[in-house]
Computed example of a mutant assay.
Amino acid sequence: MSSLETLKQHNILVLLITGRSAGWCQGLVNYLPVLGIIAENGGVYALKESQRMKPLTAINDIIEHRQLLQNNFEEIRQKFPHLQPSSDNQFRVTDWTFDCHECSQDELLTIEKICQQKKWGFTYSHIQGHLKPLNQNKANGLTTLKETYFPELSYSEIMTVGDSPNDESLFDKNLFPMNVGVANIAKYLDRLEHQPGYITNLSESDGFCELVQLIITSIN
């Protein structure tokens, strides 16, 4: 929280981008010192000024969409019966999640191939796997918000930060030339097509705080 406050004091806008559910993020954006939040890996967003979740992925019938996601998950679970749906699915709009911290890399790759065959997207973090619309990712969500609300910004003025495979699209230097991986991304590097341009020394929240200090030092 203190690092976010520090960035705000230096007039550096922060937009959170996460795989967490729309319901969880709608509460989070209310009390953090951030511009807004993109949830569900680019599926929905909320700006602090409105505090209302809005779609980034067009879904005509949410009930039908969620049923299709669940059906796809149940088909995958026939092959991997140990998979368990995440408890936050009831708060999601665009994607379907399952706990994946015990999944092997081979299992995750197989799940990705199954999703590709069925024209669904798939990504994962260290805690959850996400079944989602094919072109839904964090970079597409961020690009949409940038073009809608901040057309005056150049992409070279945007720094993206990530620490998991579901952040890979944010490491695409052709879109975001200034991108950073927090140190715990290191164990996934051999699986990523897009590699972070810089990696912090510290992991998780400590890595983010390290990055903030580097930014503030460079300004001062």
Results as ranks from 00 to 15, higher is better:
residue 217 T to S: 13
residue 219 I to S: 06
residue 41 N to D: 15
residue 153 L to G: 06
residue 95 D to M: 07
residue 25 C to Q: 12
residue 104 S to V: 10
residue 193 E to T: 15
residue 179 N to M: 01
residue 127 I to W: 09
residue 167 D to Q: 07
residue 215 I to H: 08
residue 104 S to Y: 08
residue 144 T to R: 01
residue 114 I to M: 13
residue 42 G to D: 05
residue 186 A to S: 13
residue 197 G to C: 13
residue 40 E to H: 10
residue 29 V to D: 00
residue 173 K to C: 08
residue 150 F to M: 09
residue 60 N to A: 14
residue 86 S to F: 00
residue 54 K to M: 13
residue 217 T to W: 08
residue 39 A to Q: 01
residue 209 C to H: 15
residue 124 Y to V: 01
residue 94 T to D: 03
residue 149 Y to W: 04
residue 199 I to M: 04
residue 8 K to T: 08
residue 123 T to C: 15
residue 100 C to G: 01
residue 44 V to P: 00
residue 4 L to C: 04
residue 18 T to H: 03
residue 128 Q to M: 08
residue 186 A to M: 08
residue 167 D to L: 10
residue 23 G to S: 08
residue 164 S to A: 15
residue 144 T to F: 06
residue 188 Y to M: 10
residue 162 G to Y: 02
residue 73 F to Q: 02
residue 194 H to R: 02
residue 55 P to A: 12
residue 159 M to Y: 07
residue 50 S to R: 08
residue 14 V to I: 09
residue 43 G to H: 06
residue 216 I to W: 01
residue 77 R to I: 05
residue 72 N to Y: 06
residue 169 S to A: 13
residue 130 H to F: 12
residue 185 I to Y: 00
residue 22 A to R: 03
residue 65 H to I: 09
residue 187 K to M: 05
residue 7 L to Q: 08
residue 212 V to P: 08
residue 207 G to C: 01
residue 163 D to Q: 05
residue 30 N to H: 05
residue 187 K to I: 11
residue 8 K to D: 12
residue 217 T to R: 13
residue 40 E to C: 03
residue 199 I to D: 02
residue 98 F to D: 12
residue 13 L to Y: 07
residue 120 W to E: 13
residue 110 T to M: 05
residue 166 N to P: 11
residue 38 I to T: 00
residue 138 K to L: 04
residue 74 E to L: 15
residue 189 L to M: 09
residue 75 E to T: 12
residue 129 G to I: 01
residue 64 E to L: 09
residue 2 S to M: 06
residue 147 E to C: 01
residue 155 Y to C: 10
residue 185 I to C: 00
residue 178 M to E: 06
residue 67 Q to E: 07
residue 168 E to N: 12
residue 207 G to D: 01
residue 25 C to P: 14
residue 162 G to C: 04
residue 11 N to I: 10
residue 27 G to L: 05
residue 64 E to I: 09
residue 158 I to K: 07
residue 210 E to N: 02
residue 3 S to T: 02
residue 1 M to K: 07
residue 31 Y to M: 03
residue 80 F to H: 14
residue 202 L to A: 14
residue 8 K to N: 10
residue 67 Q to G: 00
residue 138 K to P: 06
residue 152 E to N: 11
residue 42 G to K: 09
residue 195 Q to M: 10
residue 43 G to V: 02
residue 93 V to T: 14
residue 151 P to K: 05
residue 65 H to T: 11
residue 14 V to Q: 04
residue 194 H to G: 01
residue 47 L to E: 00
residue 134 L to N: 13
residue 23 G to M: 02
residue 84 Q to I: 13
residue 62 I to W: 05
residue 213 Q to D: 14
residue 56 L to D: 00
residue 14 V to H: 03
residue 197 G to N: 14
residue 132 K to L: 15
residue 191 R to G: 06
residue 220 N to V: 05
residue 33 P to E: 05
residue 1 M to S: 11
residue 172 D to H: 10
residue 71 N to W: 06
residue 159 M to T: 12
residue 55 P to L: 07
residue 182 V to G: 01
residue 181 G to M: 02
residue 24 W to V: 07
residue 161 V to K: 08
residue 177 P to Y: 08
residue 209 C to L: 08
